[in-house]
């Protein structure tokens, strides 16, 4: 994956957090990642299709997930439940939805997004079929650390018909 394609997602995370959560997250790196998730974390995933096929995954430790949804909804939840999962799913949905426009512009064709899903657990791997690798952007914020991972492979252009 061309690392420059990650910029729309990076910009989207900052914009979504700033606009909807009034929090400014700070990027603390950029690297290739494996599919492993941290213990007791939530991963919100959304698939991409079209000119690029892949997935966007928001990884949050449980404490960050709770702090984020409590801050967003004005609640005091202490356990991961459907409301927290829904909130994190909505967050990745908005992040991917906003990144989609400029990501599609980079690719010259519109990417479509699937519906978000959330995985919560302590020992799991998130793998994408094929040889695609994940690029991870870790963030620090006052709600806790989290990261966004993106993986995608370009679909071959259909042959031109003369």
């Amino acid at each position: 994956m061309d690392v420059r394609l990650i910029n729309p997602f990076l910009e989207s995370v900052i914009n979504v957090y700033t606009t909807m959560l009034h929090i400014t997250p700070h990027r603390s790196g950029l690297h290739m990642a494996q599919g492993g998730a941290s213990p007791n974390s939530l991963v919100a995933l959304i698939g991409m299709d079209g000119p690029a096929q892949g997935a966007v995954a928001l990884h949050l430790p449980q404490t960050t997930a709770l702090a984020t949804v409590n801050h967003w909804l004005g609640t005091q939840m202490t356990e991961i439940d459907a409301t927290v999962s829904d909130g994190i799913a909505e967050l990745v949905n908005i992040i991917a939805g906003q990144a989609k426009t400029s990501f599609s512009e980079h690719l010259g064709s519109t990417v479509s997004l699937g519906l978000p899903s959330v995985i919560h657990g302590s020992d799991f791997q998130v793998k994408y079929p094929g040889k695609a690798t994940w690029i991870e952007i870790p963030f620090e914020s006052e709600l806790g650390a989290f990261s966004l991972r993106v993986t995608c492979v370009m679909n071959e252009q259909p042959a031109e018909v003369n």
């Binding site: 909804l73 829904d86 909505e90």
Partner: peptide
């Protein structure tokens, strides 16, 4: 379709 999103909009 998400009660959480309805809550987010109501809060906004």
């Amino acid at each position: 379709d998400s009660a959480t999103v309805r809550g987010l909009v109501a809060r906004a």
